[in-house]
């Protein structure tokens, strides 16, 4: 049952079953003052549920922000830096988090249904108990996150996508309990791997082939812990003829 509470420093406060709701304008104003002020305000007002639903949150520097339990439904947080943010139990359904940095963010029990997480950095984020049905995960980086799912094909997909690891049922990981058939239609998952296909002139010199292979290998290895897989070359034969051969890594010049 809702009941009126007192006045807070930022406007009228309504208390509802132990939680308080405030007019969102004050909350937006509070956030504009920066993360430090916001977190301090939250510390002093632990019973207030921030309501920033549907808000275009223009403050992008939100690292370590305390959004625990906040109502961020439909909020625009595109590109926001929320590294290390605490979003435990937050309602982020339908929120736009495209390209947001959620590295090490705590999203335990957060509602991310229908959220746009395209190209978001979710590396090492804690997604235990988070709901992700119909979230868009296209090219999201989920390295270090864990997925709890008994569906084999979905485990394969998630393992493939951004490095997320499927795990056995436990308290960790995030759940896709109710994905049903609609999940794939409505959601997207990143492809972590791509194939680079380079078509060469015909004829092509061996030297040019090896120089290209070597150059690509060195550039790739400089920024990656992994090796390029392959390379595969097809020289002088049509694809139908099956003239495919694996060769040594092209470091020779």
């Amino acid at each position: 049952m809702a009941r009126f509470g007192g006045w807070s420093g930022f406007g009228c406060r309504i208390e509802c079953e132990g939680w308080s709701l405030m007019a969102d304008q004050e909350h937006k104003e509070m956030l504009r003052r920066g993360v430090a002020a916001w977190n301090e305000w939250r510390r002093k007002n632990p019973r207030v549920v921030p309501d920033l639903s549907g808000t275009n949150i223009r403050v992008k520097e939100l690292a370590d922000v305390d959004f625990r339990g906040a109502n961020l439904r439909g909020a625009l947080l595109t590109g926001a830096d929320m590294e290390g943010a605490d979003l435990t139990g937050a309602d982020l359904s339908h929120a736009d988090l495209m390209a947001a940095n959620l590295h090490r963010a705590c999203l335990k029990n957060a509602d991310l249904t229908h959220a746009n997480l395209m190209e978001a950095n979710l590396k090492d984020a804690d997604l235990a108990g988070a709901r992700l049905e119909q979230a868009i995960l296209y090219r999201a980086d989920l390295k270090g996150a864990e997925c709890v799912c008994n569906c084999l094909w979905f485990n394969m997909l998630m393992d493939f996508a951004g490095g997320v690891q499927a795990v056995d049922r436990s308290d960790r990981g995030f759940y896709f309990e109710d994905v049903g058939g609609s999940f794939v239609e409505n959601s997207f998952v990143a492809t972590e791997n791509s194939r680079l296909e380079i078509t060469l002139s015909d004829p092509v010199s061996t030297q040019a082939t090896y120089e290209i292979l070597g150059a690509l290998n060195r550039l790739y290895r400089e920024v990656s812990e992994d090796e390029l897989v392959g390379p595969i070359i097809k020289i002088g034969l049509s694809e139908d003829a099956g003239g495919e051969g694996r060769i040594d890594r092209g470091d020779g010049r």
Binding site: R139, A190, T191, E192, N193, S194, R195, L196, E197, I198, T199, L200, S201, D202, P203, V204, T209, I212, L213, L216, Y220, V223, S224, D226, L228, V229, G230, P231, I232, I233, K234, I235, G236, L237, S238, E239
Partner: peptide, 12 residues
Amino acid sequence: MNKISFKGSNAI
């Protein structure tokens, strides 16, 4: 047809 192909990280 002369072709080289590699597989690797999408982003890179």
